[in-house]
Design a protein around this nucleic acid. Structure first.
Lengths: 151, 151
DNA sequence: ATTCGTAGTCAATGCACTTGACTGTCAACT
DNA sequence: AGTTGACAGTCAAGTGCATTGACTACGAAT
């Protein structure tokens, strides 16, 4: 392991990479154990978003960092696979109202259980202070681009 | 922002997603400022790996979490774009010896500067304790899959 | 000399995302 | 009312990056 590049520095890049891959795999494994193996990459995010108040495509774009077209397609395949329904919203006929099917609700539950399991495992391994640092650090990374523009 | 799904829990998923996107963008922006805009996604990892001791394709697979074919292709395009050279290793003619060109060295330097800048920004924003927590947390996430299998 | 494991590439494929153009709907202004 | 502009969403085509499976070439061990 000749990485990370620097020495006394944080070396976030390598850590980040490893974390992201491993984390995604852990969730996928958890879902597979429940017999769910046809959820596309960002599908988990959409499903749990739906379970927590999101309703239309635009609602989902915010947290997701991709274009509306991508979300549209994503929803398309989730509808196709029986996780969602999509209907015109009568209050604003431009919008779509996306809803979970039973299958979708089950999947969303499994996803939440999976992330909760990861959270629990983290809580078991890390001290409360480390946990807080992790949250703060990830949040900071979330804004890092804007911050560096200013600074 | 109806997210994250849970309440008193960590909500790592959403944080993670935001962090990863923002972080990648920050690095790309930094490279673009140096006139470098044709580095593929994992290219930065390969270049800085090269600058720190990696030599062959197998060396890079370890940290990267992708197949050897993918790495091979990645190197292919980096060679094509003038960042790397690739020659047969005379000591073991199965292996390839990958080397940075001048252009590649410049890119690697820019990448290291970019990640260092992010590290610095993090150090400015976070307390040392939070920083340590971030590192520990990311490291833990990196092993989370194996850990959860056991537990 | 055979056999096996390793390093790497080739070719085909698939998924997810992007851009650009488009439809349909709402809201505001004259 | 009629027009203009912004917004929600989809369609279609193309790209980037990964995957799988089969293959070549080389080295090491028996």
């Amino acid at each position: 392991m000749p990485f990370p590049p620097a020495d006394d520095r944080i070396g976030i890049p390598a850590l980040m990479r490893a974390a992201r891959g491993s984390y995604a795999q852990a969730i996928r494994a958890h879902l597979a154990a429940e017999g769910i193996d046809d959820i596309p990459r960002n599908g988990a995010f959409v499903l749990s978003g739906l379970a927590n108040g999101d309703e239309s495509v635009v609602d989902m774009i915010r947290g997701l960092g991709v274009t509306k077209q991508a979300v549209s397609q994503l929803i398309d395949t989730l509808v196709l696979r029986g996780y969602l329904t999509r209907d015109i919203n009568p209050e604003d006929r431009r919008r779509m109202t996306i809803d979970l099917t039973d299958r979708g609700r089950a999947a969303a539950a499994a996803i939440c259980a999976g992330t909760a399991a990861i959270d629990d495992e983290l809580a078991r391994v890390l001290s409360p202070a480390e946990l807080a640092g992790l949250r703060a650090g990830l949040a900071a990374l979330g804004h890092i681009k804007e911050r560096m523009k200013e600074g």
